[in-house]
Design a binder for these strands. Structure first.
Lengths: 246, 246
DNA sequence: GTCAATACTTTGTCCTAACATTCTGTCTTA
DNA sequence: TAAGACAGAATGTTAGGACAAAGTATTGAC
């Protein structure tokens, strides 16, 4: 097949043209219609086929290069790298992730109160020690089984949720609903032995291995908006990342 | 200060203009010269100041938006998000990372032989079970202390290193030197208790928590080029990731 | 027949230009 | 005084063209 691929664009749609093309290409790769190693037509002829300019076509391709689905080589062309499309680790909460994969998430609220910031938290949020912060501690379950212990600290003026709100959705959803846009987050992923309390909550024994994640999130205004210290049952959870050479 | 920032470009340099600008901006942010919340001039006037076109200036800014250092808001402008510049998790080997941070890496080769691929490895590499693969097993030390146990399997025709070569550098360096370009890698990060053998090598006890990473790397041709199963002493190592909302 | 020089293909970079969209602040009007 | 209309400012999208650089294939000479 020279080009079994059929791409179309709708110029009346408000969706950007480059995005329409990128989406269709991604789906074609994900569905196996374009198999690894397949060489795309060159940018100019692709653009012509769709009635687009080269920059627009180029941008569509770039989107997929950034995602690691395509590879470009000057003087050679553009090829499909591999078909297994894995979603990049995104700025979504664990709650949304679970629901998206069909598991039934649940939350048990352990702590939900405003208190003076401990030293480590104040440092991460860029606050003074003792400034008031909202302290949350939750046990997250998936399909009725304990999955993770989630400890979070937020500036006191971001949200002030009820226990019920925390049980019905993810933290990030509440933050977004409050009109705050989370822009960047820095995560550190590690491991350690469970504390006695964690073991009790997760249904294991002290010093059992747990996967840990510390995260500091920043709003688009630049100020720190959340510090989280989570630990997960490693049998039930792992992080996936896709790295792309640029 | 309206704009204490002084940017310059060298048109005779082979380094792309947008990259020159992005680098200078990144350094200005990293050094604190541009503090969080600082609002950049608009794209057009920045481009004028440098004698560049708007697309080129725009691309420079985009680089830093992708890295999470800047935020753009339509109708408003471009702002610095936060100053702490953390390097994105990159396609570099642990060996290079250690050397870059000033620690003294060393490697002890435990296994270096060609053998039939076990089922799990064959599956990850897209091979048939029993196909010949190069099996490597190494103990990585930093400043004389054991840090990680590295198990890797590669297609037999990629590299065939001597023990000495493995001791003097990272695996990825050897792959690159062989003319193979690693383009994409998928990593899964988790945790578990150490096996007896791992505990002995890392100087701990059985069932001590270890941080684990499984990675499958693909060459630009699309074929799988390496499968790795590593475990790290969590006191000595963790992964850092920066997530950017797009 | 082998090796080197050349031509061609394809992506990479950069430019000018125009219009759309979104947000902010101001001015007008009820 | 307050709410809505409007203008301005900034980024977002798209177009079309030109040249540079790198890799591939062909051609030519020895």
């Amino acid at each position: 097949m020279a080009e079994s691929l059929r791409l179309t664009v709708d110029r009346r749609s408000p969706v950007p043209l480059y995005y329409q093309v990128a989406e269709q290409l991604e789906q074609a790769i994900g569905s196996g219609q374009l198999s690894p190693g397949f060489k795309l037509d060159n940018e100019i002829s692709l653009a012509d086929q769709l009635g687009l300019s080269r920059p627009t076509m180029r941008r569509a391709i770039q989107e997929l290069v950034d995602k690691g689905l395509l590879v470009r080589k000057r003087g050679v062309g553009t090829q499909v790298v591999h078909g297994r499309v894995r979603r990049e680790l995104e700025l979504t909460s664990l709650f949304d992730d679970l629901r998206a994969t069909g598991q039934k998430p649940a939350t048990k609220v352990l702590v939900n109160q405003v208190e003076p910031a401990p030293a480590e938290v104040a440092d991460e949020l860029g606050f003074a020690e003792g400034d008031e912060v909202l302290h949350l501690e939750r046990l997250r379950l998936a399909d009725e089984k304990p999955l993770a212990v989630l400890r979070n600290w937020l500036p006191a003026n971001v949200i002030r949720p009820t226990d019920e709100e925390l049980e019905n959705g993810g933290l990030y959803q509440l933050i977004r609903d409050a009109g705050t846009h989370v822009q960047v987050a820095r995560q550190r992923i590690g491991a350690r032995g469970a504390t006695t309390q964690e073991a009790r909550l997760l249904g294991g024994r002290k010093n059992d291995a747990v996967l840990t994640m510390q995260r500091t999130a920043y709003a688009d205004s630049g100020r720190a908006i959340e510090y989280g210290d989570h630990c997960y049952r490693p049998e039930a959870y792992s992080f996936e990342v896709t790295l792309v050479e640029r």
